[in-house]
């Protein structure tokens, strides 16, 4: 099998936070009326993960389901599981109006880690990065500088950023610049 090339070849930078592009992941876009219980149940069955509440993500056995809109969730899973997950979804969703598409090559994922991660992000997005407003398990599609991106709070000091592959370089440089040594804000990270 040929090697999968990510947008930035696993780029990494170190500063107030480390920013690194994660290895290739599988991603499946699921669109369906998540307000209907039967549809939610079918999505959960097909994806193998409980359907998250609004602006949240759920993780089970290496798979994460991110809430994207009232009729869209994104399933993130190991790359090799995407084809089988797609058929499981097709089976579970049969009879329900829906779309499930393998979009594994559509987006780039950056992992940003460090105590200052909330301060660094708050420089770039209008979304509220306060720990109370954006606790671990939260997902927010928002603006990051000039681009649209999804931000997922994985753990207290770890964030994953999803953006379109075509703007991955911009997102990486933007995060790197915002996390450069000397640029500490010390608003959320009081010890800075």
């Amino acid at each position: 099998m040929s090697e999968i090339a990510t947008a930035l070849g696993g780029a990494r930078s170190d500063g107030l936070c480390t920013v690194c592009e994660v290895p290739p992941l599988g991603m499946i876009q699921i669109r369906a009326d998540l307000g209907a219980t039967a549809v939610r149940d079918a999505v959960a069955e097909g994806a193998g993960v409980a359907v998250p509440d609004v602006l949240r993500a759920t993780t089970e056995q290496g798979r994460t389901l991110c809430w994207f809109s009232p009729d869209e969730v994104l399933l993130i899973l190991p790359r090799g599981e995407a084809p089988s997950a797609l058929s499981a979804l097709a089976e579970a969703m049969e009879g329900h109006h829906h779309l499930a598409a393998d979009v594994s090559d559509m987006r780039a994922v950056l992992r940003v880690e460090g105590r200052a991660v909330r301060d660094v992000l708050a420089k770039l997005t209008p979304a509220d990065m306060a720990p109370g407003a954006f606790p671990p398990g939260s997902v927010r599609r928002t603006r990051l500088g000039q681009i649209a991106a999804a931000v997922r709070m994985v753990e207290d000091e770890t964030v994953e950023i999803l953006c379109f592959r075509s703007v991955a370089r911009y997102a990486f440089d933007l995060m790197t610049e915002a996390a450069r040594e000397g640029g500490a804000v010390g608003y959320f990270d009081r010890e800075a």
Partner: peptide
Amino acid sequence: PYCGVAADETEL
């Protein structure tokens, strides 16, 4: 009204 986010103008 769909996601409940108090969205800044630059997100709209």
